[in-house]
């Protein structure tokens, strides 16, 4: 009889153990489904620090640029350099550079494409294209058609979705692959989705 009681006790303890683990698992899985990231003060401070550094550099570049207007010849050079910089940003001519090429195999929805593009820019990408279409102010929005297809700049996007991003590739990849980052949230939300990313020395965006 005592042996029977011991078995029951052990069984119920094990059962309780599994119930608790399962409950915690549900909690962490539901966190992964979130489109936004949990609070992290260190990350917040790091972002602000980096942002201020970028703004300081931009202000310094503008000051240097302005100083060149003291002399007409250097002023002309400064304006030409500005035109070249803005041309690269505007998307009016093809550009190339190092970066990351990401292939997403499977069906994803518009909000997740928006989130992945957002994550790429947040990770420091300077230019991004999706299935060959460069995202600039005139072409940045994704539409959803009644059947669920994704429309970008008048073209229907079909899988596999290829995201090309120019920038510091090691930084971009490491941010995307962070635990709780966009890759883990995306694959948790859409089971069976396959994401392959490779760094390249040269990627051309048209």
């Amino acid at each position: 009889m005592n042996i029977q009681k011991t078995y029951i006790l052990i069984t119920t303890i094990i059962l309780g153990f599994f119930i608790a683990i399962q409950s915690r698992s549900f909690e962490s899985v539901s966190n992964e489904f979130q489109r936004d990231v949990k609070s992290n003060i260190f990350q917040e401070i790091k972002i602000l620090k980096e942002k201020n550094e970028s703004l300081r550099n931009e202000a310094k570049d503008l000051e240097d640029n302005l100083n060149q207007f003291a002399d007409q010849n250097s002023a002309l050079g400064a304006v030409e350099a500005e035109i070249e910089k803005y041309t690269k940003l505007s998307g009016s001519t093809p550009i190339f550079g190092p970066g990351v090429s990401i292939t997403v195999s499977g069906q994803i929805t518009t909000p997740w494409v928006v989130d992945l593009v957002n994550a790429l820019f947040n990770a420091g990408s300077e230019a991004v294209s999706v299935n060959g279409i460069r995202l600039i102010n005139k072409s940045a929005g994704f539409d959803t058609l009644p059947q669920g297809q994704i429309l970008l700049n008048g073209s229907v996007l079909s899988p596999p979705y290829v995201f090309n991003a120019l920038g510091e590739s090691s930084n971009i990849i490491s941010i995307l692959e962070l635990p709780g980052g966009i890759y883990s949230r995306l694959t948790a939300a859409i089971p069976g989705l396959k994401i392959d990313s490779i760094t390249k020395d040269i990627i051309q965006l048209n």
Binding site: S54, L55, N57, E58, E84, K85, T87, K88, L89, T93, P94, I95, F96, G97, P98, G99, G124, E126, A127, L166, G167, E168, Q204
Partner: peptide, 14 residues
């Protein structure tokens, strides 16, 4: 009012 980064962008010579 933000920064505009182009350090990894190169124009393709046409």
């Amino acid at each position: 009012n933000g920064d505009l980064k182009v350090s990894h962008l190169n124009p393709v010579k046409q």
